[in-house]
Design a protein around this nucleic acid. Structure first.
Lengths: 217, 217
DNA sequence: ACCCGAATAGAGGAATTCCCCTATTCCTTC
DNA sequence: GAAGGAATAGGGGAATTCCTCTATTCGGGT
């Protein structure tokens, strides 16, 4: 009897999770052991449950997939994570590889591709679309690492969360409510964000963040 | 024997379509009769196949869900379309209602919500999330229908200039100096921009403007 | 000639951001 | 165990934004 491949799903869209779970359940040998709505939930669940494969959405509020991947691999280095992305933007691709993901699948590709990715990664290989990989190598060789947004600006986990919420029009009090912290703390994060990015105000900060792919649009 | 409810799915993400189809297939009485990758494909398919319900993603390349909905209803007025959206962004919601959608479901809500939406719409009712609807009604009752009728956002030349300068971190006084007008005028433009785009503050405005290609990134 | 929208500008006030501080706790790293 | 970064939280105040309201000018269109 073959061992089941256990899978965890991390995505903020419940409908997408439901769908993915349903698709995977129909494939022989796959078993979805958990779903997480956010990166934070995911890290929480990892304490108890360690799946063979994690399918990780990149764009999520609160904690994005890149950071969640980094954090998870810090604590569980042997975890195998496959990134799911809506965009073929090379920057996410690059960042996800750098974070330690073993695979990358575009959401616009079908379940066959996903199944293949899971099997490959489960068997100890990588799974990265050839065209994206080629593109990435070309980019790096031609434009250097600066093009990959390897600037010295590194936002902390909390700062990224705050930034995400600033982008969607939240005030300090609203952000405070959502992150269960004081508005004053949010204000401090905001100030630090402006300082780190060398921007003048929230509008400028949002522009900078989008341009430099600190957040997904 | 009950008649099957036939469903069409329009979304550019194959994995999402696969998942959705799988979820819906497990619900008794639902039958997915087609999937379309783009709005154009969808209109093509409609010539031959008319489902009871269409699940329509809003953000798609080539032809977005709003335009696809409009076009489809022009030719097939009795078609029942439910919008699927990642964002609770007010403008999509409004545009989709205006385009003639009978329902609106956020992707972050679960399959139960989706099932409910399909059943309601199939039975001749609408399905719109209460909080979003309340928000919209509030807006209309306070600002009049004129504010809403102008749903296709067109910025004036001056507004675009001001917006551009807001994005690069300029304050009202700085913008005033650069455009040789009073800071108070800039303030008015700013207020109008927020109103037109229905955004909450400058940061949100910048995000919206970039998302909707009102400015160059 | 008349209306309308765009652009201009101001009064005035509430809300929010921005930006100095200080300070504590909890990690991690050296 | 010391040092440093991240996150927490607060005081306080200046600057800026957000919002409502009124009002004038100018040019394009019916």
């Amino acid at each position: 009897m073959n061992r089941l491949i256990t899978i965890g799903i991390v995505d903020d869209h419940a409908i997408f999770r439901d769908g993915l779970k349903s698709v995977l359940s129909q494939i022989d040998g796959f078993y979805v052991v958990f779903e997480a709505m956010t990166g934070i939930d995911f890290l929480e669940i990892l304490r108890d449950t360690k799946p063979d494969i994690v399918l990780m959405d990149i764009s999520m509020p609160e904690m994005d997939g890149i950071r969640a991947t980094e954090k998870a691999l810090e604590r569980h280095p042997h975890l195998k994570i496959i990134a799911l992305s809506s965009y073929s933007d090379h920057i996410y691709y690059y960042k996800m590889i750098k974070a330690g993901a073993e695979g990358f699948v575009l959401k616009k590709s079908g379940k066959e591709e996903l199944e293949k990715a899971i099997m490959e990664v489960y068997n100890g290989n990588n799974f990265f679309p050839q065209d994206l990989l080629k593109n990435l190598i070309f980019k790096i060789s031609h434009e250097g690492r600066e093009a990959m947004n390897e600037s010295d600006i590194v936002l902390s986990k909390r700062e990224t969360e705050v930034l995400q919420l600033i982008c969607t029009g939240n005030t300090n009090s609203e952000i405070a409510d959502k992150l269960f912290i004081s508005p004053k703390t949010v204000d401090n994060h905001r100030t630090n964000l402006l300082q780190k990015t060398n921007t003048k105000n929230a509008a400028h900060l949002v522009m900078f963040a989008i341009k430099n792919h600190l957040i997904e649009v």
